[in-house]
C-alpha cells in the first residue's frame, strides 16, 4: 500500500516515527487550552527542547479550542512547534472542531512561510478520538486545504506505531483509489 501521495504539488506522506524526534521544519503539538506542555509529547518537548519552548508560550496566555500558536523548538531536531488546541475526550462537535484545528495549524504554517509540517494522529490516543476517525479527518482536511493552494511543500503524518500507522495507510489508500 502507498505511503505517499501528491496534492497540488505538495507531498503528503506517512512516517512511522516519534514526532518529537524528527528533523522537520515544524510539527504540530496537540495542545491544551492553557498551553502548558504537560506530559507525553509535551514532556518530550520539555526534555528534548529545553526550557525555551514553555518560555515562548508565556506570551500567548490561554487559547481556545481550534486555535493555534507557533513557537521555536529549542534544542529539538525540528525548528518550530505549532501548538494547536484540539478538541478532547468526546467533547461536543468534535469532528468539526478537529477539522478547524487542523486548518488553523496549516494556515499558521502558511502565514509563517513554513514549507514542511508534520502532524501526529490528531486527537487519537490519550484524547480518545478513534484512530479511523482521526485518520479520516486528518487526511481529508489536509487534502482539502492543499487543494485550495498552499506554499507548504511537504506534509508528514508521524505515527508512533503500527497500530496508528495501518488505519492511516488504509485511509490514504482509499483516498488515492477514489
Amino acid at each position: 500500500m502507498p505511503d505517499e501521495l501528491h496534492v497540488n504539488g505538495t507531498s503528503l506522506r506517512l512516517l512511522k516515527a516519534d514526532i518529537t524526534d524528527i528533523e522537520v521544519d515544524s510539527f504540530v503539538f496537540y495542545a491544551r487550552e492553557d498551553l502548558s506542555l504537560g506530559s507525553g509529547y509535551g514532556n518530550a518537548i520539555t526534555m528534548r527542547g529545553g526550557p525555551s519552548v514553555q518560555e515562548d508560550l508565556k506570551e500567548f496566555g490561554e487559547r481556545k479550542v481550534t486555535e493555534a500558536v507557533i513557537t521555536g523548538a529549542g534544542n529539538m531536531k525540528a525548528k518550530h512547534i505549532i501548538h494547536a488546541v484540539g478538541p478532547k475526550f468526546q467533547e461536543e462537535d468534535l469532528p468539526e472542531k478537529l477539522r478547524t484545528t487542523i486548518i488553523n495549524a496549516l494556515k499558521l504554517a502558511d502565514e509563517k512561510g513554513i514549507t514542511q509540517i508534520s502532524f501526529p494522529a490528531m486527537g487519537a490516543g490519550f484524547y480518545g478520538v478513534p484512530l479511523e476517525e482521526s485518520a479520516e479527518i486528518t487526511l481529508s482536511t489536509i487534502m482539502e486545504y492543499l487543494k485550495n493552494g498552499s506554499k507548504i511543500q511537504e506534509v508528514i503524518i508521524s505515527l508512533l506505531d503500527t497500530r496508528e500507522y495501518i488505519p492511516f495507510q488504509k485511509k490514504l489508500n482509499s483516498i488515492q483509489k477514489s
Binding site: 506530559s39 507525553g40 509529547y41 514532556n43 490516543g125 490519550f126
Partner: peptide
C-alpha cells in the same frame, strides 16, 4: 492523566 499520556505518546509510564 499525566501517566496515561506519557504511556500513550512516549511509550512508558514515566516519560
Amino acid at each position: 492523566a499525566v501517566v496515561s499520556k506519557d504511556q500513550w505518546e512516549i511509550g512508558n509510564q514515566m516519560g
